[in-house]
Design a protein around this nucleic acid. Sequence first.
RNA 1: GCCCUCAUCGUCUAGGGGUCUAGGAUACCAGGUUUUCAUCCUGGCGACAGGGGUUCGAAUCCCCUUGAGGGUGCCA
Length: 499
Amino acid sequence: MNKEQTNTDNEHIRLRFPPSPTGKIHIGNIRTALFNWLWARKKGGELVLRIEDTDQERSNREFEDIIIQELEWLGLDVDEGPNQGGEHGPYRQSERLDIYKKYRDKLLDNDKAYKCYCTPEELEEMRDKARKKGEMPRYDGRCRNLSSSEQQAKEEAGKEPVIRFKTPVSDKEIVVKDQIRGDVSFDSSVLDDFVIYKSDGMPTYNFAVVIDDALMDITDVIRGEDHLSNTPKQILLYKALDFEIPRFAHLPLILDENKAKLKKRSGEDTVYVGEFRKKGYLPEALFNFLALLGWSPPEEEEILNREEIIQGFSLEDVNKSAAVFDIEKLNWMNGKYIRDADLDQIVELSLPYLREAGYIEDENVSSRQLEKLKKIIEVGRTGVDYLAQIPEETELFFTGLEFEDRQKAQEEFQGSEVELVFKTLIEKLESLETLNPAAVNSIFNEMREELPVGARTIYHPVRLALTGEESGPEMGNIIYILGIEEVKQRLENALQLAD
RNA sequence: GCCCUCAUCGUCUAGGGGUCUAGGAUACCAGGUUUUCAUCCUGGCGACAGGGGUUCGAAUCCCCUUGAGGGUGCCA
């Protein structure tokens, strides 16, 4: 890496995250936002949110709202943007059209751009020809030197032109100084006179992004590697417009399970940030996990909070190779966050899922009910990857007893040994001063010593009688949550069933 | 096809010439805790894509091959 391009510690940096509102935001995009955010926070710089809505066909205000919502959810606050304003606004490209026009006209006047009237068919033909010759498909510049009468003729024929940039031939080699990849050079012969203005009167991405980044005083452009090939074009524009060129950093891409770039259609809905939010992934966990995709902390510990990640983060430690998005590891990490989090918080976040499952009927939960819910969720959270799994994990505490195989259950409850176990258990529970999991567990230990039956005969029938299941949470927890009355009831019912 | 990038356990990664018989995390397997599932603890399995160089010495530097990804749009 070149020392000159590494920013100094005291330099004020400005970063940006420029999503296009053409779809819901997915993991790849928000990871880019995260890295920009981290670097901004680490360096005490600013993060700008800019909405790149120059695609009139596909841009949608709804998507803009979703993007903002998900950024907030993950805790990625921006310093300037459409909602918070700022001195470099407006922050929607659709509201900056006058600005782009000004620079477009400047290029036109300086003979650095020209109108092109070629049809899509003509362009396709050109590309085919280039491909056949084994060259990069490129525009051949046939409209570059149209005479004004030729132009007029085309205009009168009703053709709306695009504006193309007159790629200078003087720059033989264009070098992108990348903070992650080092110097990447491109031969200018692979560049063509690319479109900077569409026929619908909107600037293209490459044009608008350069103007905005320059005018918004962006010092560091951190974006996905898929933009690396665009960068030489942008550098040419910076030069033509006499703008200062920012530093670049192209992040490794995040791949889906098929090792292809994560995109809208990858793996159903699993790539959208909103899906993770809805399933009950904790933002802290996703934040932590995403930070580890492409970056690794100085120490070996991987569970890190926001502050620790900001402290440890550095662009220099970002690696170059693409990373597969591994949901298994996210699940582990999220589960860990759920288990380590404050119980009250997890209870609060679990309520919507329990309501949806119909396990909580009332809009307002009484404090007594809440106490019980806390116990249930404390037990249930040890077995989940995300909160949407809480209802199924805690089902047995909400629904009545149901034996999957009634016949089998009946047999299980048969015999004097089982009766002895159940009656002893009830007795011991009733003589208990305070009911808590530990006390229940010691009752079971006592029974193992005192009763002439094996451990399995103690635990298994009890579990089945109380839950209808053959496996589940610890008995101590189950009985603690169910309460003595309910336990008594279910044990007696089981004995009746056996008769 | 052409251009660009990348290449360490299945996955995420540490490693920037000797300390690497390659470290951690996850996943998986086994043992322990537990009546059970989960949690938790311990242990195990498991990788430097291949070939040439450079060097006393290469996972680390160079080249080639191969593979993967990205780009090649009046999408961003």
